[in-house]
Structure formats: structure tokens, C-alpha cells
Design a protein around this nucleic acid. Structure first.
Lengths: 295, 295
DNA sequence: TAAAAATACTCCATAGGTATTTTAT
DNA sequence: ATAAAATACCTATGGAGTATTTTTA
């Protein structure tokens, strides 16, 4: 049975064309080296060297075999190297999902930082709602998600990485748009645009309880799934919306953002991943997030 | 130190995902297999399998490493296969030279036959004179030559493979062209076209002594190196020439070939090769020649 | 509790060492 | 005469076997 040892010895003898010197460089004695080469030759079924007692030269077949052996060792190095890279999460692919609003705050920084530390990981991005992300994570279609917490499933790891206050999005022509900040109670009679509770129950409940704190239940006239759509509907004067402050980064003509007079609960964004079977790449990604958050 | 044994074991465990069954298929016991895999993992510096006592699955790095290992084994097979082919002379290249007249008799058959038996040997052909071939052989620029014997050098192997009578090439308008065969003595007064003695001393001497047998020394008015040129000069009515009969295959308008009345010596063609350091490809080539000659 | 991997040890095959011979220059 | 590979024989590392324990589903 051919072993790499045989090939290593062969390469050295082929390089030195001298069994004694080759043995020396291999830190071994000459007779076992001769023996191993002989063994390799019988295993291969052809001569590698043309030996006279005074000189050793490669046969034609030996020369060709030498070239092939180089490829083998190169392949082996490649195998070890890429294996190690994957194990360190430096090579591979990562499927990431995010709620639409995450694209306006944490995501850009994190992705930039991750790409620069491990450029050999290819990314796949999906804009999904919180509940869709939970589903996709379970199915293994994504590896990490940026969601609106809380996440119930105990098999998932989940850390809040970002918190931001809520603001009111108003049509530009709206009377309240003249004020620099808006009191909750003044929104009592307004038409509200909101997303379906299922999509992000945590944030939904925060908004509802905030309204209750202002002494009213919001009159939801329209539901929309994406934050962009909600803002568009505000621009179309369909109503007002309470949204995370980072949505200000989505400047849309016809819409203005105003802070609330009251202290609002913070809308959080969290990373989620499968606690079991999370790859080194995911670990790397989480490390990068931690680093980014510290700054 | 990583050995192919480790990789073979790893491949089997990766295939079975079960140490017991893998060990069975490798005709060995389970504990040493576990041990070898562990050894491989420490050598590599990363985990290949994620093991619970109930199940074995490949890590991401393990999967990648598995793919790389497949390539390694494929490369190894390739190395052995091509080495064997080269050793059998079935793969490689062969530089062949030939005197111009050989192109009209033995060469075509031999090349056809060789190409069909060992199609993976690439051929390089050179039309050279006998003395040039000897030179090129010494310099290693060609591996075999088709020459006009004799060859003095004892380090060369040399076998006559073909013999042919000599004929007279005459201008079509020549008086002797009317005869179906020509007596030597009638050529006594003719102008002769001949090649320089150095190019093929054997054939040259044969022609000269043939003329002497006819009672005259040829009056050489023109020398030419290539047989085609000699025939062209005959066509141009510069003189007559004595040439090997296979030159009849070179039909040139204005030239006719006539046999001699006398029994002529035979012009021979021989193969030459370096006796020392002759590759398997050369051996193969010589075998093919032998076969072709037997038919 | 049962199946499967890991651990602990034992053994022997063989890689590798030493001494010597052979052979080509 | 000498350098270098081959041969003969010996040693000991470590690969593989057996018995047992550990672990988790």
C-alpha cells in the first residue's frame, strides 16, 4: 500500500539524485531509504530510478511521477489549509436575514466589518420579517437573523445588539408636523398605519402599550408589512405611524419625523442563531458583531 | 505526520458515518480506527467529525476536507496510471528523423502502425541526412533515425529494416528512356547528379562502385542534398541519376525511371537509436517496426 | 438498557538502524 | 582505492488487536 512516506522519500531522492544525501536530509539512514524506494517501485510496477552504483538518475516514468507527486503534495497542503480556514470560519458561506429596519441601523456596519475580517466568506442576504426568519432558521435556510425580539424558541441563541427610541412619522402637511416634538395624547384621534402583530409581536406590543400610556387605543386604518411601505402610506397621508428612529435614514419627501414628548420604550434589534449546529462561520459573525457593538 | 492511511480511514468513516461499520469495511477493529482519526484531527488542528455517542456527522471543515481528499486520491491514481503508461512507452513524446527517401517507402506504414498502437505518444518529425541524424542523436535532439547505413558509432543500435534495388532516373526526352531497361555501360558518357558523399557514404559508395562495375567513373556535374532536388535536376535535363527504386513514388513530369540490366547492390534503410538511455517509447517504436517488417 | 465511541493495555509487524558486502569508476 | 548502493540482520516504534468503560438516546 502506497503511503505519503514513500512519496516524500521519493521526492527527496529525486531532488538529490543520491541515496546517501537524501537519507541525511530525511534524518534517516541510507539502507531503509533504499528499501522504501524499492518497495514503492514494486508497488507502482515500474522503475523510478535508473541506478548504477555510481549515479542515480530518474527514468522517464520517474520524471512524470515526480511531477504528479508535486501535485499531490500541493493538493494535500490545499486540503489542510482550506480545512483549517473553514474550521476557523474564515472560509465558507453565510446566509443572513434581517428585518427591513435593520438595514437602516446596525446591518451596514456589521457587514462591512465582517467582510473585511473574513473576505473569503460569501454572504447571502434576505430581507424577512421576524417570524419568517424564525421559520427559515429552523429549516436551515439561513444561519443568522436580525430580528425584533423577543424570540421564544429555546434552541435559538439570541442577543439584543441595538436599541433605539420610537418617533412619530407624520405627513408633511399634518398640523402636528409644525411642532418640534409631539405629545402622545395629541395622537389619540389619528389614523394609524401599523404592521400585523405576527410579524414582530414585541415591537407591536410596545407601540400599542405606548398609545395606551397616552390614553387611547390606536385606530389602525391600514396594515403594511415593510417599513418602507408604512412610510409611503404616511407620505400618501393615509395616517401616522410610530416607528424606530433609524427609519429617519429613509428620507422620503412628504414625511417628517418627530420625537415624542414622553419617554418611549426602546425598540430593540437582536441577532438570532441556532444554538446547536452553529458553524464556525456563525461564531465568527457573532464575534464581529460583538466587536462592532463595543465601539 | 499525515499518511495516506489516515486519509483512507477518514474517507471511509465519512462515507459510513459510523466507526464500527467503517472499521469493518476496512477489515480492522474499531478502536485503532478511532485512534487514527483522532491522530489525524490533532495533526490537522481541527475537528473532522462532530461525535455524540449515538451519531457521527461531518463538521463543515470535515466536509470540505473530504472533497479535497477525493482530489488527492484521484491525483494519486493519475500519478500511478501515467507513470505506468510512460514506463510502457504508451505515453510520452518521440522525436524521429529520416532521410528524404525513407518518406517514400518504410516510414508511412511504420508511423501509421505506431500511432494506432500508442496514440498517446506525440511525434516530432525531422527530415535530415544520415550524418545530421547521427549528430542529432548524439545531442539528444532526436530519439530514433531512419538512415542509409552503415553507422560506425558503437554506442548506437542499428538495424537494417528495408532494402531496395537501384534504378536510373532519366529525363523523359533522353534517348535511353526509350529502352525498357538500361545497361550500365551505356551510362558511361552521361552527366551524373549525385549527393555529397558525406550525407550517406554507404549509398554513395554503392553507386560509385556500381558505375565502376560498368567500366567508368561517373561524371558528376551537379550535387544536390535532397532526393527531390536530384529528381528535379534530372527533369531539367541536367543529367541522369542512380537512385533507390522507391523514388518512383515521387512521380515528376519529365522524369522516367528505368531498371538496370545488371544486378545492382541493394540500397538499405536502417533504424538507429542510442543503445544507452533509450526510453521505453523508443523500445515500443522498435517493436512496432519489427512487427511491420514481419508483414 | 443497548448501541456505539472512547480508554487501557497488549502484541507484533515493519519502519528504521547497524554492520557488511558488492560494484562501478 | 573509494564512494555509494545493496544486502543481511537486528531493534523498537507505533499500528492494530482485545477487553473494558463511558455515554446518550
Amino acid at each position: 500500500m502506497i503511503e505519503l512516506r514513500h512519496l516524500r522519500y521519493f521526492m527527496m531522492v529525486a531532488e538529490e539524485l543520491h541515496f546517501g544525501r537524501a537519507a541525511e536530509r530525511l534524518h534517516m539512514a541510507q539502507p531503509p531509504l533504499s528499501h522504501q524506494i524499492r518497495q514503492l517501485e514494486t508497488e507502482l510496477g515500474f522503475q523510478l530510478f535508473y541506478r548504477t552504483k555510481r549515479s542515480v538518475i530518474l527514468t522517464d516514468a520517474g520524471q512524470v511521477f515526480w511531477g504528479e507527486c508535486r501535485k499531490i503534495f500541493w493538493q494535500l497542503e490545499q486540503a489542510v489549509r482550506t480545512g483549517q480556514q473553514v474550521s476557523r470560519g474564515e472560509l465558507g458561506q453565510l446566509a443572513i436575514a434581517f428585518v427591513s429596519s435593520a438595514a437602516y441601523n446596525v446591518l451596514p456596519q456589521i457587514l462591512r466589518s465582517f467582510r473585511s475580517t473574513v473576505p473569503q466568506v460569501s454572504l447571502e442576504l434576505h430581507e424577512l420579517t421576524t417570524d419568517q426568519q424564525v421559520q427559515w432558521l429552523r429549516e436551515g435556510r439561513i444561519d443568522v437573523g436580525f430580528v425584533r425580539p423577543p424570540i421564544e424558541d429555546e434552541t435559538f441563541g439570541c442577543t439584543t445588539i441595538f436599541q433605539e427610541p420610537l418617533v412619530v412619522a407624520l405627513p408633511k402637511a399634518h398640523a402636528l408636523a409644525l411642532q418640534s416634538q409631539v405629545a402622545l395624547s395629541t395622537l389619540a384621534g389619528e389614523s394609524f398605519i401599523l404592521f400585523p402583530r405576527l410579524l414582530a409581536p414585541g415591537l407591536y406590543d410596545q407601540i400599542i402599550s405606548l398609545c395606551q400610556q397616552g390614553g387611547f387605543s390606536p385606530n389602525v386604518v391600514q396594515e403594511a408589512i415593510q417599513m418602507q411601505t408604512i412610510i409611503s402610506l404616511v407620505a400618501a397621508e393615509m395616517g401616522v405611524a410610530i416607528v424606530p428612529i433609524s427609519l429617519q435614514n429613509l428620507q422620503r419627501t412628504g414625511v417628517v419625523y418627530r420625537p415624542l414628548v414622553e419617554v418611549t420604550p426602546k425598540a430593540a434589534i437582536a441577532v438570532v442563531w441556532r444554538k446547536l449546529d452553529s458553524s464556525a462561520t456563525v461564531q465568527r459573525f457573532l464575534e464581529v458583531i460583538e466587536q462592532v457593538m463595543q465601539r
